[in-house]
Design a protein around this nucleic acid. Structure first.
Lengths: 343, 343
DNA sequence: CTCCTCTACGAAAGCGCTTACGTAAGCGTT
DNA sequence: AACGCTTACGTAAGCGCTTTCGTAGAGGAG
């Protein structure tokens, strides 16, 4: 029975090294109960045959997988692709493969994707991206995640609370506070916040931080308009247009992520407003390109790749009795897009 | 034998709907040979039980997978993340999952990743990113890919020739020619090309196009310095520093990708050189952020997401008798970073 | 020398699914 | 009425691995 042109199986390795397939399996997967000499013989045979275990067979038999699932909103978005980069790098080190899903920012698609990852019996699920303030929107997701976790699945989230699982949480609120303090410290008082939809917890948290700073400076947070738009570059452009129309005397724009900030810069430039001469602009996230913009974007740095890696680390660890939380510090990075308030 | 807290299996669905597991399997996977009424009954039962097929069992039994593997150099890089975005979106529509590997631009890691995808028995492999001019570097990859393809695997590549499989090839050379013609048309003659390593075919092709245009304009291509550096923003900065030192009278920089162009803009700005007043800069790729830079980057648009989607489409199709090639047009996009040559 | 305990290994039972093959029933021919 | 053909379904043999359980042999204790 010659199987030409097929990849060798465990049984081929077993035959070649003169042991049973049970022993071969143990030798190759490092399970104890095999003498060193036999184990080495088996490994040698495997190498010579070019044997690679069939993952599906292994998963089916063992009931667990080396694949980990990563859910992001949009992989084309630098915020998420940098997180993914961190996850991928670490996963590769651990010999694990990563299956990425993106949801197009649709909460229903998100639940759908998680369900499909569960169905695929992935070993762990990582969920990146903001949750929703509204608990009822969050409920199906929470349900799905909990069920998976209770069945022994490992889950970790980044930048998302309230899911009752291990999480890596950036200091959104302190970050918001820091950037607002910076703006205030430059003398700005006619400020506008450019924000993604307030339904996102990330947005809400950052905004909260901004308000903390405003109150601390004795301002009424109600005096600072919050312009809401899509959490994208186009959203930033749109908000700046509204700002120029409705709040023409504004001297500083606090955008709640870099994407929007980039859109703001773009629109201000096309509208002939100088930055930071007439209007200062700040962002949030510090995506890679932020430092190369003109002017360089003042923003709050979040170590995205590291956050991804830490989430993976959490998911790989033994589950704790309760959900762990890792805070990730947010660091203000001052560049050229902010300057003293024009008089 | 009650299996509490475990997901239902095919046999549970079969029992619930009063058929054999073979019929249940056929009904759920759409294999012909089941009457409509029975099929509907089975699907109904599956829905009620919340049944989802175990992918591993299915793959093991059928010998094929719904997973497709995508190899990129660096998922954090917009060029690749936009391709990945296209692949993911289309894959989701097809009910397929995508496993992404990134290689950190290391040719050996690349082969390693492909090997591991093969081991995982993925249904198709997509490889994005430039190949190497040097055939001997390319050989192991070619070998691996061919072996997989011969064993019935489906492979498609984007932006890479010489692998002997279906490919989606951007018009790098015509694109290079177009952007160089644009620069020449603006009156520039003291031009510098800022380039990634010449070992990459992508770089070589684009450069070829640039030279075509130079020759056509009656210039000696040898007169135009080619500054080589890493194919990244930092590489762009570095090359500009060299340019300012060695070729101070340059009026135009043709960067061979947007990343480098962004680095060029950044360095020129910090060096106090105005763009496009003193020096014009062009890029290549048209990553999403290019339009929002200041000045907006003149570049050559490649529809990355579409390229990814097309590669997937090729891989999903029945294999042809010979490798198919799809050319993707490159379109010059003129923005504000290029202007008339200063006298 | 016997009995017991370990250790190293083999036999074999699945993991949950697909699919080749077998068969019974229905239908049209002659 | 006998025959073949088609359709709809069931039976059972795997897919390639892990893991439980059983056992032979080595070694120590009495």
């Amino acid at each position: 029975m010659v199987r030409t042109n097929r990849s060798p199986r465990l049984i081929d390795v077993a035959h070649a090294s003169g042991v049973s397939i049970a022993t071969a399996s143990r030798a190759l997967s490092g399970t104890p109960g095999v003498s060193d000499s036999v184990a080495e013989k088996v490994r040698q045979a495997a190498r010579e045959l070019g044997y690679v275990a069939n993952l599906h067979a292994r998963s089916l038999a063992s009931g667990s997988t080396a694949t980990i699932g990563l859910v992001v909103h949009e992989i084309g978005d630098p915020y998420f692709s940098e997180i993914a980069s961190g996850v991928l790098s670490l996963a590769t080190e651990h010999g694990r493969t990563v299956q990425i899903c993106h949801t197009g920012r649709d909460p229903e698609a998100e639940v759908e994707q998680v369900r499909s990852l569960v169905a695929n019996r992935v070993g762990a699920i990582l969920i990146a991206g903001s949750g929703f303030v509204d608990a009822s929107v969050e409920a199906p997701m929470r349900f799905e995640v909990q069920r998976y976790a209770e069945a022994g699945g490992r889950v970790a989230v980044v930048g998302r609370h309230h899911l009752g699982v291990d999480s890596v949480l950036p200091d959104n609120r302190p970050g918001g506070r820091a950037v607002a303090e910076h703006i205030l410290g430059l003398g700005h008082r006619r400020i506008v916040v450019v924000s993604g939809t307030l339904e996102l917890t990330t947005v809400a948290d950052r905004l909260e931080g901004v308000r903390d700073a405003l109150s601390a400076a004795g301002l009424d947070a109600g005096d600072v308009p919050v312009l809401e738009g899509p959490f994208t570059r186009e959203g930033g452009r749109e908000c700046v247009r509204r700002m120029l129309a409705d709040h023409p005397r504004t001297t500083a724009v606090i955008a709640l992520n870099d994407d929007m900030a980039i859109g703001c810069l773009s629109q201000l430039r096309s509208s002939g407003v100088s930055v930071p001469g007439q209007v200062s602009v700040s962002g949030f996230d510090d995506v890679a390109v932020a430092q190369d913009l003109s002017p360089g974007l003042t923003t709050v740095r979040l170590p995205m790749a590291e956050m991804g890696a830490r989430a993976l680390t959490l998911a790989l660890k033994e589950p704790g009795s309760r959900a762990r939380r890792q805070r990730v510090p947010a660091e203000l990075v001052v560049r050229d897009s902010t300057g003293p308030a024009a008089q």
